[in-house]
């Protein structure tokens, strides 16, 4: 999980069964926007880190 610098979005790497997807959540409203990236089966996206995390 990574929060961007503006603290408007949280990126989450989520196990969806057969693969992982990277989801984006509006923060602090906590509204899930979209599945951002759905990697190929077999990938293991353990974390995501958008720029300007701090």
């Amino acid at each position: 999980m990574s929060m961007n610098k503006a603290e408007k979005q949280v990126y989450v790497s989520n196990d969806i069964g057969t693969s992982f997807e990277i989801q984006v959540v509006d923060y602090p409203r906590l509204k899930r926007v979209n599945a951002k990236i759905n990697p190929t089966l077999g990938e293991w996206p353990l974390a995501v880190a958008p720029d300007n995390v701090l």
């Binding site: 790497s13 990277i22 990236i37 077999g42 990938e43 293991w44 995501v48 880190a49 958008p50 720029d51």
Partner: peptide, 19 residues
């Protein structure tokens, strides 16, 4: 800048995506 990094433990890679 404006990228997302995704690590793959099994494939020994970090993949870079646009944000």
């Amino acid at each position: 800048s404006h990228v997302i990094y995704s690590g793959s433990y099994d494939d020994s890679t970090i993949t870079i995506y646009p944000s």
